[in-house]
Write a protein that binds this DNA or RNA. Structure first.
Lengths: 219, 219
DNA sequence: TGTACATCAGTGAACGCGCGTTCACTGATGTAC
DNA sequence: TGTACATCAGTGAACGCGCGTTCACTGATGTAC
């Protein structure tokens, strides 16, 4: 179900050297996305920053949109692997829900901070271009299910009448908040009233309150 | 403090007829935004839909971006007036927090449904163009303060240790969720697990739980 | 080990499409006397 | 009340800029014998 298409957007390279060029192009693009939107970054600009050329770019990607797809694919692969590792039930033996939620939220905040530009670009692309949605949804769903499995093993701690739904919706709300936090610049802090430093704790608090989990002694 | 600039982006019309043209242009643009993004809507397309012409467009707006500014201005004016009316303390004499929050959340869900296209366009514009942020922030802040005043009159009902901050953050989280719900198409429902019909209730529940308000008999 | 050839990778100037913007002109409205 | 003139509003074909994309060419890597 989760799209396995291994970078079929990219013409696979034949020499190691061109694989490096491809990585450099992806890295350059992601770096530039920290400062501007995808449409504001030119192909020539990306190529130059990668120490490459426009021609090389088009030797790897059929068009500019394919670059964003490749970035999405790369991020989703990393995200899936990370979730599988981080949300492995074995890792959380004996842990209670507050501990898990706090850790996950803090981690998600970190990702959104560190890769702000990429996530913003992907989020915007998804809003208007259907071809970006499936992959994005698949990743969210994967993480949501893994987290759900973990929390529902502990459903006794959850007071919400429909724990499975609550876990899914709670996770979605955390994601939604982070997405907005990523898109919103500092101005919106006046509305939010919670600094980025305090965000993980407050977000976890909100999520736990919604689930109906009593704050544990662990936190 | 809230930007009062009365449509200074628009060259004010001298004849009634041209005011009508302007309104038709705004309406046509907003209608087209339901289907596509701002960049995907052409000036000629807007003019045609408004039963007008490209030249007329440029007689009213210095450039295409000014149109989006005008739409933002119009929406913000309506929103401000609506908030002043809807959140007037006199209106809520004797009401408890759950009743207020439920009503506000339901109303916000409705707005985001009815003007999905415009809100999506404004949200995307804000993410990348600083000149859209101030107005957007001012509107959110205005509503947040009005709502805050209303709820903080009832702070006894709030268990959160910092009620003022909690009200602001809770409101912001509701907004964030709605923004994402507006940008996300149906696919994401698999992640969210809450349909648009059930959204108001679940969002209100989450907000109230975060504030630490006991569900009242009123709801 | 060395030479010839084939294939792959890289280059960047030139192209061309799309779309915002302009502008010379027509038509409509209002005002002076 | 009627005519002349000034100003405002509207029109859409033509322009031109920006940027994604192409392509003819050079250089690098690998392979055959």
């Amino acid at each position: 179900m989760p799209a396995q298409t291994p970078l079929r957007w990219i013409r696979p390279p034949r020499q190691a050297r061109s694989q490096e060029t491809l990585d450099r192009l992806l890295d350059a693009a992601e770096a530039l996305l920290e400062e501007k939107g995808f449409d504001d970054v030119g192909v020539a600009e990306i190529a130059q920053r990668a120490g490459s050329s426009v021609g090389s770019f088009y030797a790897r990607f059929p068009d500019k949109a394919a670059l964003l797809h490749a970035l999405q694919e790369r991020f989703a692969d990393e995200g899936t692997a990370t979730a599988d590792d981080a949300l492995d039930p074995a890792r959380w033996q004996g842990a209670q829900i507050p501990e898990i939620v706090s850790a996950v939220v803090a981690f998600l905040v970190g990702i959104h901070r560190d890769r702000r530009g990429l996530l913003r670009a992907l989020w915007l692309a998804q809003a208007l271009r259907p071809e970006f949605r499936a992959r994005a949804t698949a990743l969210s769903l994967h993480v949501s299910r893994r987290l759900g499995a973990l929390l529902l093993e502990r459903r006794a701690e959850i007071a919400h009448p429909d724990p499975a739904r609550a876990v899914a919706f709670g996770f979605w709300q955390v994601l939604a908040s982070l997405r907005c936090a990523v898109l919103e610049p500092e101005e919106a802090l006046a509305v939010r009233r919670v600094s980025e430093r305090a965000l993980p704790a407050e977000l976890a608090r909100a999520c736990l309150a919604y689930l109906g989990v009593r704050p544990s002694n662990a936190d």
